[in-house]
Design a protein around this nucleic acid. Structure first.
Lengths: 220, 220
DNA sequence: GCTCTAATTATGCAAGCGTATAAATACACG
DNA sequence: CGTGTATTTATACGCTTGCATAATTAGAGC
């Protein structure tokens, strides 16, 4: 046994399955944030997670599964962040809707990194049915939550809230939020702090014909 | 000269530079439409254009240049289609804005293929400054055109149209159009024919507090 | 009809990709 | 303190990719 090892093998720690999955997903998001979906290669992700590439396949059958998990994680994180804003700030439904919109149109949801992953995914939706399903679930879930908020806000303002109109309102308000979120993520630097959130609130107030600031301003 | 050629060389025709570029861009769009940006490889594009891969580099220094040209072509095409709708249908500014919105929220602009290319691009914007520039130009151009339409529509309805409010209105209306376009491209099948366009018109009327159907309905 | 050149094909290369698999090792358990 | 196993590393394979370059040829101009 006189031979000396020319290279030392990487030392490592065993981690819990959940921890590793989370780390790998976090590393994936870092890659996407910095170089887009194309930059999220198996090797680069492993490097970020301080792990060797083979381990990824131990936790995810294929790379697409990791990417899909990362997408779901981001969407879920955004959903949770928006819901948190609801919990912490409201009893009047109009305040709740107001807080929901402001949360979606401010940090940390309105962030270029989120957009990069979202866009990369959307680009695959058309070609990959599995991802299309993942997307539609997230979209409808978001819109349903929004529709419930709108219904309550309308009722609190003494307005009718029949399903047909409420649905249409939800579609329009969803578009306003999505569109402004997009603008902010893509070119946040050309807008003043809070400008997009204010614009969104004002537009939604106009569409629903109610005030979302019931304490300060009266109902329209 | 008894030797026979084992394989015959591909016959070809020389084409004008413009024609070839257009063909290559069209082939690129086909690839993106079918399999997403990732499916738009140099070899696949060449196959579609009935050309060998090397020729692409003769017209485009690098693949990214072709992709960028394809992006610009699509955005330009959509812009032209929307502008055509303006020319063919209007003298009252409110009708013009109405037509503009309807055009952007209907065929052929609201199309999954357009979205695929757009999304793939947006995903790269964050990482590639050149593409970021290409995008911002297109975005600001679109918004400027929209802002002009809005200003005229407001004035025609006897409403004030000072720059500050007009800008904010343009941001909001742009968000509505973008958001609904997105929804329609992603899940057009869950909406009735023309539903998104109607929803968009109604939302924009509410935001601007004017009617966009001056012949039938009066101003609000 | 010849010639010259620009357009096109054909071939190959080096790099990077995702994936497979065997060897090594940390660590829980007795 | 061993021992077994789940976790992790290491290595390599086959494929695809974008790009370079040499050979060919279509077609314009004289």
């Amino acid at each position: 046994m006189t031979a000396s090892r020319s290279t030392t093998r990487k030392s490592f720690r065993r981690e819990g399955e959940d921890k590793r999955r989370e780390d790998l997903i976090a590393a994936t998001l870092e890659c996407v944030a910095e170089r887009g979906l194309a930059g999220a290669t198996v090797r680069e992700i492993a490097l970020r997670a301080d792990v060797t590439a083979g381990l990824i396949r131990y936790y995810f059958p294929a790379k697409d599964d990791l990417i899909g998990a990362a997408y779901r994680a981001v969407m879920n994180r955004m959903t949770v962040q928006a819901s948190d804003a609801l919990k912490s700030a409201a009893d009047d439904p109009r305040d709740r809707l107001n807080a929901f919109v402001k949360a979606n149109l401010g940090q940390p949801i309105m962030d270029p990194n989120n957009l990069s992953l979202w866009a990369g995914f959307i680009g695959m939706v058309h070609a990959d049915p599995a991802m299309a399903l993942a997307h539609r679930d997230g979209y409808l879930g978001f819109r349903d939550e929004l529709e419930a908020l709108i219904r309550e806000a309308l009722l609190a303002a003494g307005k009718p809230a029949d399903p047909i109109h409420t649905r249409r309102h939800a579609i329009a308000v969803n578009a306003i939020i999505d569109g402004l979120w997009l603008e902010g993520c893509l070119a946040g630097d050309i807008f003043a702090e809070g400008e997009l959130a204010e614009t969104g609130i004002a537009a939604i107030e106009a569409v629903l014909a109610i005030s979302l600031n019931p304490e300060k301003g009266g109902a329209i």
